[in-house]
Design a protein around this nucleic acid. Structure first.
Lengths: 242, 242
DNA sequence: CACCCCCAGTGACAAAAGTTACTTCCTTCG
DNA sequence: CGAAGGAAGTAACTTTTGTCACTGGGGGTG
């Protein structure tokens, strides 16, 4: 990226003209404006990676930006093509953590870049504790849906089943590695976007591999340690190819 | 559902104890409290359907509720299993429209039911215009992701391609039915969660069917009318089976 | 103009997922 | 106790999707 310009008054005008911020008080605008920069991005330049920690809130002034996820095998899933006036990454910003997508400029683009601290501070000043909690809750939901989406787009049924079981088991506060879940195969199928029979096959396989140690009516027992080992192995293997 | 009880003070206590509303001012709490009801739901009872217009905001007091989408073929995709303290449908509520999932009680359940008008009014009182816009934006994003998810879980590539093309073309302000899109097959593949070759096959088929009228380098032309007809036919056919 | 690169198109094949159709095993309920 | 219903397990088969490998075309650039 080219070094950012920063004519404060111009930046303030930019901020004021954003529909999404038009209700902001003067003080908050000033706080934001002080730290806000304008950046020129060249065509095909990556603005941020999926794994980058969230540091900025972006608003698109001119140009086009593609937000997309990438799989280990190199496939992409486009989440959204953004145009002038669109803003992005509010969600990961609020929930903390990282951008969950990669952003790339499809043409020469001008961005308004607000440091996340300044942005969240200004936002919190105007929304009350309740509002903030609602926003955080929504952001978490976005994060959650985004992960589901990624799984469905990139992973086969076996991996989806494994990550689902891992997620479920990690929610259980228990130190032991052996977790019993009260789920039918149909339940698992509905959580992973497939059908009962396929889950049955998959679970049989997992049983042979020792991930599932015990099955009974109305549930089964999984070996959390072994499962997480397997999941890690699968996600790291493809990187060996590179 | 059983007829709701409504001891106002009890309801207020309930509202106050919700983490997500704890920052609300007294007046707003009272507004909400006045219209809030407590409802007992029996196991397996449907709380709302996907297509129901949003009328309430729900908070789970005790019990378990399953939120899921259903396909025409009867498959389900579980979005979330909710427990005590969880609240739901903030998203569709803010964006207007309908719940995008079906909610069913997995066991006997007690719900705090806040009419959406009272809820949004109280919320808007505490969040400023900017906050409200941010919230709406997030809700729209949730709506959008939710639709993507549904498509990936339930539809085959051909249908995904068709709905994607339809959505894209509907965003173009043009009266004519013939819309030209500057997209490569790879672009379409990335938007529909598949690979180039499969899109190529699919597009050939669509061309034979007259949905795609013209192809050139860097783009193709679709017949919006014919496309939407086909999409409708596909979504209505399965219902004939029932 | 020739070369190169990117994209489209396609056939053949492999693998994954979905479907159909039974059988078996529990559990519950009359 | 026996019947019925629900869930699981599985084999065989179909369909869909993904992969590989190659051809051909068109546009832009040196």
């Amino acid at each position: 990226m080219k070094p950012p310009m920063n004519a404060v008054s111009e930046v303030l005008d930019d901020l004021r003209s954003l529909p999404c911020l038009s209700g902001l008080g003067k003080d908050d605008l000033l706080i934001m404006g002080e730290f806000t920069k304008i950046r020129e991005i060249a065509r095909n330049e990556v603005i941020f990676e999926e794994s980058d920690p969230v540091k900025f809130f972006f608003v698109l002034k001119t140009g086009t930006v593609k937000l997309y996820k990438t799989s280990q095998e190199g496939r992409e899933l486009i989440i959204k093509i953004m145009g002038p006036g669109d803003y992005f990454c509010c969600a990961p910003l609020c929930a903390g953590g990282n951008y969950m997508v990669r952003a790339i400029a499809l043409e020469d683009t001008t961005l308004i870049v607000i440091p996340s601290k300044a942005f969240t501070q200004a936002l919190r000043n105007t929304v009350s504790e309740t509002g903030w909690r609602i926003i955080s809750g929504l952001c978490n939901k976005i994060h959650y849906l985004s992960r589901l989406l990624e799984d469905l787009a990139f992973k086969d049924v076996e991996k989806r089943v494994m990550t689902t079981l891992l997620t479920l088991s990690s929610q259980i506060p228990q130190k032991d590695d052996f977790i019993s879940l009260q789920l039918s195969h149909q339940d698992v199928a509905s959580m992973t976007g497939t059908v009962r029979e396929v889950v049955s096959r998959t679970m049989s396989k997992l049983k042979k591999e020792g991930v599932i140690t015990h099955t009974s009516v109305k549930g089964f027992t999984i070996d959390r340690g072994r499962l997480s080992m397997l999941v890690k192995k699968q996600t790291s293997l493809p990187s060996l190819r590179m």
